[in-house]
Structures are given as structure tokens and as C-alpha cells.
């Protein structure tokens, strides 16, 4: 299917006027996709007083910024944002729209996709441009949306062959940040915002924000535990090790579900993506969703009692043994050599 419009849009989300890191990651990826398609990369920004965010959007490869500034758009709210974004996409029909898989993106993107009747794929771990056959028809230059599915036992490639607009959400940290040496474009297209009564149906009574509670994402060392740690008590060993070597503790989804660790420290497709200098995987079997969040770590130590666990396929150092027994030996070994 040929489509006149080959543009790639990235919804750049902001909090207090500051654009989110994930949006820059998506612009970096969007730059590559737009180059492959031969289209423009446009950053869509809604908010108030967004000068710095606009400058950064160009820095990360935007050809153009679509800017909707209004005091009432200062903070994200579902109804006005989805109405404005949905309206612009319906009118201009970009080929691809990317959203961060954040509390904002996951609230906004499905509503917009429903309005524009676009395909939307959540939590993609890779995005490429490619041709595809579907039901004996050939499609050129589709967005190939890759995501693990079904408990991580399969990797699915999703396409949106017929819909004019292809949409995807991507978690923070998945795409590489690629700043441009010199800003790409400088065109700012201002779009007026006219509030409607329905925009204000939902009112914000209170908003409470905390600093990011944990530093898992930026930690040079991550000590992670899986369901194989067996208990919350054994998880204490991970905290002990992490404290000693200057790391942060993280866990798999199974560990979160079992209550061993809080959800904000979950590493994997539906959690954080990390690239530390050292990742120590303890009692983690290594389902693909988990590996998607850690496999680019510089060095990986895997400790697991099952010698056939898939985690051993991505690690650099493999230790077959019960993590609860191995970690104290590591701690001892570290303490001895520290003296």
C-alpha cells in the first residue's frame, strides 16, 4: 500500500515543562525510521512554556516541532490531550506515531488509537521498517513492531498493514539515545488550543509527585533476584550484597508477583530496561521478557541451580548453584579482598 504521508511523529511528554527521557529515546529511533521511510520526523508537544523542551526535540533529531501551548495544557489530562492529539493525527495522517509506555503514554495512546482507528502495539522491544506479506498481499515499508508475548515464550512481530497510521508504545530505556551533533530542524508549527466544556469534565484535586524513589535505572551495578530466590528472607541477601558492592536491588516480574520486591524495581519488558556495568542475576531463569530488560548489560553474572536455565545463554559468568548459598560466598570473597 502506498501512502503519501511518510512522516514519523513522536508524542513528547513533559512534566513541569521538562520533556521525558523516553521521548528523546523515541525521537532518536524515530529519526532512523523517518530516514528509512524518506519522511520527516515531527515532535508533538503539548504543554505550557516549553522553550527548553522544543530546543531539545531538535537536538534529538526532529525536523519540525508541532507545538500546542496553553496554560490549561500545563499538566497532562486525558480528555484535552487525547482530543488534541487525536484530532491532529486524524487530520494529518502521519505514517507512524510513537508514544512512551509511561503512565501518560499508556493512558493517552489507546484513546487516540481508538479515535483514529489505528493499530497500536504496546511495549515494543524493537521497531524496524520492512516489507511484509500478509494474506498473499505485499506491503512496502511497514513498521515491524516486535514484542515478546505469551509469558515470554514467543516473540511476535506485529504489523498494521491496512490502517494508514501505525502506532506503538515503547518503554523507557529500550531505545538508544542519539543526540545530533547539530540540531536537525528549526521549524516550529504552533497549533492553537481552544478549550471545550468536555475537556474539563475531570478535574485535578491534588497531585503529589516524588523524586524517583530508586536509582535502579542509573546504577552501575544491579543485583537482581527472581522467583528462584524462594523467599523474601533470601532477598535480604541481595540487599546485603548490593549495599556492599555499591549496587541497586532489582527483581523479575515473578519476584514482584511473589511479593519479594516492589514493582518499581522490576526489570524486563514491562518494567525497567537497564544497562549497568555489572548485572548479577540470582535465581532468575531468564525468560525473554526479563532478558529484554537487561541483556545489554556490560557484564552479566548468572547464579541458578538449573544448569539449563536460559539466563546462562546471555551471561558472561555462569555459576550453577543455589543463589542463597552462593551469595554469602561472594560476599565473603569480596570482604576478604577488600581488606
Amino acid at each position: 500500500m502506498s501512502n503519501a504521508n511518510r512522516d514519523v511523529w513522536v508524542f513528547v511528554e513533559q512534566r513541569d515543562g521538562r520533556a521525558a527521557e523516553v521521548s528523546f529515546e523515541l525521537l532518536s529511533k524515530g529519526r532512523k525510521l523517518a530516514d528509512q521511510l524518506g519522511g520527516s520526523l515531527k515532535a508533538l508537544l503539548l504543554g505550557h512554556e516549553l522553550g527548553e523542551a522544543v530546543r531539545q526535540a531538535f537536538h534529538y533529531g526532529s525536523d519540525e516541532v508541532l507545538l500546542v501551548e496553553h496554560p490549561e495544557l500545563r499538566d497532562y489530562r486525558t480528555l484535552p490531550y487525547s482530543r488534541v492529539v487525536g484530532g491532529l493525527i486524524a487530520k494529518q495522517q502521519p505514517r507512524i506515531v510513537l508514544f512512551g509506555a509511561t503512565f501518560i503514554g499508556r493512558d493517552l495512546a489507546p484513546r487516540v488509537a481508538s479515535f483514529t482507528r489505528s493499530g497500536l502495539t504496546a511495549d515494543c522491544t524493537d521497531l524496524q521498517i520492512g516489507d511484509a506479506d500478509y494474506l498473499r498481499r505485499e506491503y512496502k515499508d511497514l513498521l515491524l513492531q516486535v514484542r515478546p508475548a505469551f509469558g515470554g515464550n514467543i516473540i511476535a512481530t506485529i504489523i498494521t498493514p491496512e490502517a494508514p497510521v501505525q502506532m506503538a508504545t515503547v518503554r523507557e530505556g529500550v531505545m538508544e539515545l542519539v543526540p545530533q551533533a547539530t540540531p536537525r530542524g528549526e521549524t516550529v508549527t504552533r497549533i492553537p488550543y481552544e478549550p471545550t466544556a468536555s475537556d474539563n469534565l475531570v478535574t485535578v484535586v491534588e497531585r503529589h509527585r516524588e523524586e524517583r524513589r530508586n536509582k535502579v535505572k542509573s546504577a552501575p551495578i544491579v543485583v537482581a533476584g527472581g522467583y528462584g530466590m524462594g523467599s523474601k528472607k533470601n532477598f535480604a541477601l541481595l540487599h546485603q550484597l548490593a549495599q556492599l558492592i555499591g549496587g541497586e536491588v532489582a527483581g523479575t516480574r515473578a519476584a514482584v508477583d511473589a511479593g519479594f520486591i516492589t514493582p518499581d524495581r522490576q526489570v524486563g519488558q514491562t518494567g525497567l530496561t537497564v544497562r549497568p556495568k555489572l548485572y548479577i542475576a540470582c535465581g532468575i531463569s531468564g525468560a525473554i521478557q526479563h532478558r529484554a530488560g537487561m541483556q545489554e548489560s556490560t557484564r552479566i553474572i548468572a547464579i541458578n541451580s538449573d544448569a539449563d536455565a536460559p539466563i546462562f545463554d546471555v551471561c558472561h559468568y555462569g555459576i550453577v548453584g543455589d543463589a542463597a548459598a552462593v551469595i554469602p560466598l561472594l560476599i565473603d570473597g569480596y570482604r576478604e579482598r577488600l581488606r
Binding site: S118, A156, T160, P310, D313, G318, I319
Partner: peptide, 20 residues
């Protein structure tokens, strides 16, 4: 609008790592 183009089973490469 979304279609599954293909599904790959997860094939592990075996990977070279140092056994400790």
C-alpha cells in the same frame, strides 16, 4: 488493524560464557 506477521519461538544460542 494489528496483525501478527510472524511468531518466533525463542531459540537460545547457547552463548559462550565462563563457568565459575
Amino acid at each position: 488493524p494489528t496483525k501478527v506477521k510472524k511468531v518466533d519461538s525463542v531459540v537460545l544460542t547457547g552463548g559462550n560464557h565462563q563457568r565459575v
